[in-house]
Design a protein around this nucleic acid. Sequence first.
DNA 1: CCTCTTTTACGACATGTGTCATAAGCGGGA
DNA 2: TCCCGCTTATGACACATGTCGTAAAAGAGG
Lengths: 136, 136
Amino acid sequence: MKKRRKELRLATGEIEILEILWQAGAATIAQAHESHKRKVGYTTVQTRLNRLVEKGLAKRIGSHPASYQAVIQPEDVSRDDLKVLVDRVTGGRVVPLVAHLVKDRKLSSEEIRELKELINEAERRNQKSKSGEGEQ
Amino acid sequence: MKKRRKELRLATGEIEILEILWQAGAATIAQAHESHKRKVGYTTVQTRLNRLVEKGLAKRIGSHPASYQAVIQPEDVSRDDLKVLVDRVTGGRVVPLVAHLVKDRKLSSEEIRELKELINEAERRNQKSKSGEGEQ
DNA sequence: CCTCTTTTACGACATGTGTCATAAGCGGGA
DNA sequence: TCCCGCTTATGACACATGTCGTAAAAGAGG
């Protein structure tokens, strides 16, 4: 059975650290400390990392220069925290959000293709159930 | 000069309340309490609302059944908090995020059209600058 | 084996958050 | 005018977070 975390509410700061781990795959305290934008003390990073481990959001690997690795994936966050956040902030409107995303960075042809595919799927789904929904 | 808030780090919970205010425009404690999904005590909402005011993120209007109104707008959040969050959480990868968004809800034909348009734009932009970037 | 540097382990502390319970205040109807 | 229910004002608390300082442990060299 799936180890289902009931809520997964990430604090702003926790994501700060997780970002680093996701980006690097794994990082030692020193590395994480380096990558940390808003510079803070070394031990601060250490503590944060450890607390993340305690909460089961990350795990330690190796002994001396131990590396930390995120246990949860970005997708996991999307499902809980981010989902609500994004949905509400964009008022449930995906277009503005997507606009922001695609305009802000350059996509590869591959991504473009996948995106199109997604839209098409949605369209098909949309077509299929075109019965009666009138709330504007 | 613009009153530039230096950082704007919103705690997960603050957004919960702000959402309500954005959605309603303004709300009394009672109303906010009602609209609050994850039900909590009346005074809890009261406290949260007040703390928001203290931090200048919302303001009180009227006296007896006082209404609270958000001072910052969703856009403000998008620009600071959300932007970083989304970008990083999806690891810079928009596809998974969009996938999540479009699969999770039904889009109107209108939205589908707009989405397609966005993708096409991106594609065009992509085409234009197809010179040399080889990092996979 | 001794010393220096890098890693870890702890412990501390001020704030921030989440959640309430209680106790005053106030207006309107009986 | 007096009481009742809805509003506010406080005060409390436990736990979470943000940030470190220090001291103990472990390897790397000499």
